[in-house]
């Protein structure tokens, strides 16, 4: 499947782009992260501390074991600081 992968805040800065299209067979968010982290040093560094990474699948917050079945958009970002 093909996914739009979005990055926000310091994940976007570390990876060097706000979004990319990724072709993947990943079954879960965790599988997708493993694939992304293996792409290059920038991705590896962005995903080096998973305690600091949150994820949304199709704009809903999920945990890292969430399935990617039918997903179109996956976003990665640090813990949110609104309000």
């Amino acid at each position: 499947m093909t996914l739009e992968v979005l990055y926000f805040a310091w994940l976007r800065e570390r990876i060097g782009q706000p979004r990319e299209t990724i072709s993947t067979t990943a079954a879960t968010v965790r599988d997708l992260i493993a694939q992304l982290a293996a792409m290059d040093d920038w991705h590896a560094q962005a995903f080096s501390d998973m305690r600091a990474v949150r994820c949304a699948v199709d704009q809903k917050l999920v945990d890292l074991d969430a399935p990617l079945t039918g997903a179109r958009e996956v976003a990665f970002f640090p813990p949110m600081t609104g309000g």
Partner: peptide, 8 residues
């Protein structure tokens, strides 16, 4: 909103 709305 402080910790679940996607703002940074």
């Amino acid at each position: 909103l402080k910790s679940r709305a996607p703002f940074w």
